[in-house]
Write a protein that binds this DNA or RNA. Sequence first.
DNA 1: CGTTAGCACTCAATAGAATAGAGTGCTAAT
DNA 2: ATTAGCACTCTATTCTATTGAGTGCTAACG
Lengths: 341, 341
Amino acid sequence: MDLNERKLKILQAIVQDYIDCAEPVGSRTLSKKYNLGVSPATIRNEMADLEELGFLMQPHTSAGRIPSDKAYRLYVDYLMQVKKIAAIQSSQLKEKLVRSFSEIEQLLQYSSRVLSELTQYTTVAIAPQIKGSKLKQIQLIPIDSEHIISVIITDTGVVKKPLLRIPGGIGDISVLMRVSGILNEKLRGKTLQDVEELLEKELKHEVFRFSSVMETIIPELFKTLEEIDDFELYLNGTTNIFNFPEFSDLIKAKSFLTMLEEKKKISELIISSGEGISISIGAENFFEQARDCSLVTATFKVDNSAIGWLSVIGPTRMDYSKVIGIMGQISSYINELLKAR
Amino acid sequence: MDLNERKLKILQAIVQDYIDCAEPVGSRTLSKKYNLGVSPATIRNEMADLEELGFLMQPHTSAGRIPSDKAYRLYVDYLMQVKKIAAIQSSQLKEKLVRSFSEIEQLLQYSSRVLSELTQYTTVAIAPQIKGSKLKQIQLIPIDSEHIISVIITDTGVVKKPLLRIPGGIGDISVLMRVSGILNEKLRGKTLQDVEELLEKELKHEVFRFSSVMETIIPELFKTLEEIDDFELYLNGTTNIFNFPEFSDLIKAKSFLTMLEEKKKISELIISSGEGISISIGAENFFEQARDCSLVTATFKVDNSAIGWLSVIGPTRMDYSKVIGIMGQISSYINELLKAR
DNA sequence: CGTTAGCACTCAATAGAATAGAGTGCTAAT
DNA sequence: ATTAGCACTCTATTCTATTGAGTGCTAACG
């Protein structure tokens, strides 16, 4: 028993119909709506086979069939035709994104919003995991007698600019520059994780010798690095979940929204995806609470290391072809922008 | 017919019980749980009076009573005893907040989170409305040959530090300093709103004369200011709403969460509150979708102008005494920190 | 021999009827 | 003025009947 042409056609019809209507699909509906050239009875036979093969499920004996995760997988891999985004929409999109964002975080954050608006699903953007990236430059810039801004630039293009308050006053600028020099010399090329440790353990003493005023800068800097959250998530369209009947159960909706608040888990889930645009469906997600969901994720690279992610989260009955179409367009624009940097 | 001692006592008991249990309160329950010294029948009579006076409502004839907005108002104004926060908790709280945040946004953002954790309600923090505040200082700081950071400091203590990319290269530093000087001279003391306009209309040309390289800086700066959202909201504990039975209806939960996404309306709602800690109950909120909610809002001032807000949003059946207790403590710590700045 | 019409069967969803129980308002006694 | 007693109201719950969409099986068909 193999997947002949007709079975594939029927399966495709069922998946598409279920994506559209969210109702179990029956043989009658199927033969009426899609002209498959065979009678409902024949379709029923085929459906029974497809169920046996694990592509379809019945909520109960007298209901139509719904696709299994396996069916969605087959669908996205072989059956689906990616919907191309309309030309007008595409140029509007480009225009929106191209407003040259100087910082990666902003670009991703904004893309997430646009993506959510276009797809009407929930989207997540993850900015580079800053602690693993390497320090390129650190600058201490005096603002007034009591404040400095420390500009921290990493190889992944992330820029942090914390304002530090030095209650005792920052004193002589030349000292500041001197310290700046030492920090750069000692820390350049190290990951921020290492920088954090070095600051705490070694440099503290070294720089202290230099200027007692600096006693306060290093701990402040350390504290700032310590506080940086490695999982900055930008969520958009979270309430879209209410539009889907499969989440019209309060418990399900709650569990979805609560899941989104588990930033660490969500980011693990997204970061673990493959190159380019990848799709994970239902039970393919290792994260327990995401078993009812599918993710379409785009990974962005700079210098061959992944630095950003953009993801659409929705029911397994997601409109994959639409989402992938939009995602493809957006991610190619983002890649363009990243290259031009 | 006036509110004698006994009526007040009964009303207080009803409000408290309803806050605790979220069930209409009947005369029997009332006389059993709270020793009011009178029989259920007497209580029934008093309740009938209280209903006539608009303090109580009956969901239906054979149900107990629930408090009206008017009753909650009376309760918070006269009957409630503010729950003091436990000493241990208070010192932990202080410790958490005092990690000297140099930037107001951070302080408020963090306070919002802590407040939500302690109260188990949804909280909103609103940072200063930056466009209305006045420019204190602007600095253009070279980072590398193609990037500068423009540090914008306002009188309300907000600091913006956008990274600007100057594709043509920034050229000579002395020119940068010169432009910096001009910008400061011309723009200091103006609101950022005005600065935005001035940049677009007048300064463009003036500075252009100076250096063709600067042609790009001004538009970039303008764009940045333009993009600044005047309503930066920091939400926390949004899913807490699912813990309250009055929102266990999907439509209500959805409408609550959707309401929170209307940033502009929410901020209007919060910003319109009075000095110090103020409470607005149900229909007192002019914002349609907030009619089922109550807000407890703390307003923070610097130099006599409001620059930050912290708000708890929950059902009208909110545990006011607990929330106000916690809010009071947090806001006094925040005020301390703002003064020390 | 694959396809299809016909039909009995299944099961969720919906509507209707019966019951239980919490709470009220009124009346009459204390 | 307060309270016990009681009839009454109305929701919530449970149970039953009905409807209808959809299936699987069988037998007939081309």
